[in-house]
Structures are given as C-alpha cells and as structure tokens.
C-alpha cells in the first residue's frame, strides 16, 4: 500500500479538480487508514491534504501535487451523441433500458430526439425538447391567477392548472380573511408539487424551507427538459452563473428561472446560452469563458465611463 490515490472535488466553487497524491513511504505504514482527504488551491498550487491514522494517531500529510494550469481544471467531458426516435442503441439483453428508451426483444431503441448517455449497464436518452410533466416533490415557479375562498389557482406552465390550498402556505390565515392580502393575482411563488394523481388539478404546497413568494426580479422561460443541464452536475453550472453575476437565482423544474439582483441581463444571456447549446459537450467551460469575457468588457466599460465623468 505504497500509493494512495485521492480524487477530490472542490466544494465551494465552479471548477472541479482531480489530483493524485502519493503517500511517501516514510509516513505510511501498512496499518494506515485514511480518515479524511481534502484539497486546497493556494497560489496556483494544488495541495492535497490527507489525514491518515497511524498507530491510532491522526497524521496530516500535505502534499503539493502540481501547479494548476487552466487546462487541468477542466472537467473531463463526454462526447455527446444525438439520437432520434427509433435509433437502435444496443442489441444486448444484459443492458438496462433506462429513461427515454424502450425495449423490443433484445433491442433497445430511443424514444426521443435527445442526448445518449451510457453509464455502466444503463442506457438513457435525455430529450432535448418537451413540455413539463409534474412530478411529486418538484420545485416549480408559478404565477397566481385567481383565488376562491380556500385556494389560489396557480399557472405553472402545465396543461392543467395547479391549486395552492390555504392550508398549504406557511402564513396563518384567519377564517374569511381576504386572500389577496397574502398572495394576489400576478404574484410569483416558488412552490412544491404535493402530489400527482389522475385528477387534472395539481396541488402545490409551500410549507417547505425553500418555498417563498418571489419579489421583483425577472423570470426567464427555458425548455423544461434542459433544466438539469442548467443546474449542472452537483449544481456546477448554476453556481457558476450565480457567482459570476452575483444574482439570486431560483430554478423551477417547470422551466422557469427567476433571477434577481446583480447583473440580471448577463445572467439571462448565460441562461439562454445554456438552453441554446444544451446539446454541446464542455458547456460549463463555454459558459465560464463567456461570463469571464463579458465581465472583463463590463469592467473596462465602467472604468471608461468613470474617466469621462471625472
């Protein structure tokens, strides 16, 4: 056990870094047990901090792995393959036909025009277009359309209307209270889907830590099937946009994105870019480059305008 491989992802930001650390033989004995592994980037140096247990005493090893170059921070990207309905994906009984595919005998076909993903034995196709179909527990952004004595009616962009019962909001509402005092027509809410049944009405609820009324800001509509791409793996993409634009962003699974504060228009352009190029591989890097160049331009513009003022 002379070598120890550590795979680390930086938690707090955009770029994930993968490094490999080798334990020096002097420190590591056979009884070594890894307790914790972290990495930190200081002055373009990637340090891997590994805490190991040796003879029951925790020992900290700090290992400088490599100088971080820009290319090193880029995540490995899979080449995207676009398939259309009826494309033969696999002729094998040992593979699992996942979402977006169907099986006919030993053959697995695509159901959608979308991106092909093969992981282990599972084949899935992520559609590139489509309408939002509500699922239980989804966060959605809705607009209050009307209210009666016990419900608000909410438009969440689905075929059927959603209702938000008075009982399902965090506020205490007295009997016979005027409901428009709490949520009036045209208000935006960040709510959750309570249940989906054969009933054409979709009940929502807001008794959740994340749910709230959305004030000000702007709403951007994107194609609902591209929401996972906008969020990115472990939220990389949306965090990148949030951090660069310094905006508050809420993403509803129904394809509505609410942006407030910071550089709203830049955030909107970045979101539209994700929607437009959702089928491309290496999209996070593309968006990061775009945001960087835009921010640089903005800065130079600001300094020019300041100069002219003085």
């Amino acid at each position: 056990m002379a070598k120890l491989s550590v795979k680390i992802t930086k938690k707090d930001d955009k770029k994930s870094v993968v490094g490999t650390a080798s334990k020096s033989k002097t420190v590591v004995s056979k009884k070594t047990e890894v307790v914790e592994a972290n990495k930190a980037v200081t002055k373009n140096k990637l340090n891997v901090i590994v805490t190991v247990k040796e003879n029951n005493n925790p020992v900290r090893i700090v290992k400088n792995v490599q100088t971080v170059k820009k290319t090193d921070t880029r995540r490995e990207v899979e080449e995207t393959v676009i398939v259309v309905p009826g494309d033969l994906l696999e002729d094998n009984l040992n593979v699992l036909a996942g979402l977006g595919t169907y099986r006919d005998g030993s053959k697995v076909y695509s159901k959608y025009t979308g991106l092909l993903k093969k992981r282990d034995h599972m084949i899935t196709v992520i559609p590139l277009n489509g309408v939002y179909v509500p699922k239980k527990g989804d966060f959605v952004i809705g607009e209050i359309k009307s209210s009666n004595f016990s419900n608000w009616w909410v438009d969440i962009g689905t075929a059927f209307n959603a209702k938000l019962p008075v009982m399902a909001v965090p506020e205490f509402i007295e009997r016979n209270a005027d409901l428009s005092k709490f949520y009036k027509n045209g208000d935006l809410v960040f709510a959750r889907v309570d249940s989906v049944t054969s009933d054409p009405v979709i009940p929502l609820f807001m008794k959740d830590r994340m749910c709230r009324k959305l004030y000000h800001g702007r709403v951007i509509d994107i194609i609902p099937t591209k929401v996972p791409r906008l969020i990115g793996r472990e939220g990389t993409m949306i965090h990148l946009i949030k951090d660069s634009c310094k905006s508050v962003i809420n993403v509803g699974q129904n394809g509505r994105v609410w942006v407030k504060g910071g550089d709203e228009s830049l955030a909107e352009r970045a979101i539209k870019m994700v929607e437009m190029f959702a089928y491309k591989s290496g999209l996070t890097d593309m968006v990061s480059d775009f945001l960087e160049s835009e921010l640089k331009n903005n800065k130079s513009k600001v300094s020019v305008s300041e100069n002219t003022k003085s």
Binding site: V84, P85, G86, G100, Y102, Y109, K111, Y112, T113, G114, P127, L128, N129, G130, V131, T225
Partner: peptide
C-alpha cells in the same frame, strides 16, 4: 412530433 419531444417508437 419527434422535434417536439414526443416519445415515439420510431419515425
């Protein structure tokens, strides 16, 4: 239909 993201067996 395929462009609209409707699930289909084929074209």
């Amino acid at each position: 239909l395929a462009n609209a993201g409707i699930p289909m067996k084929g074209l």
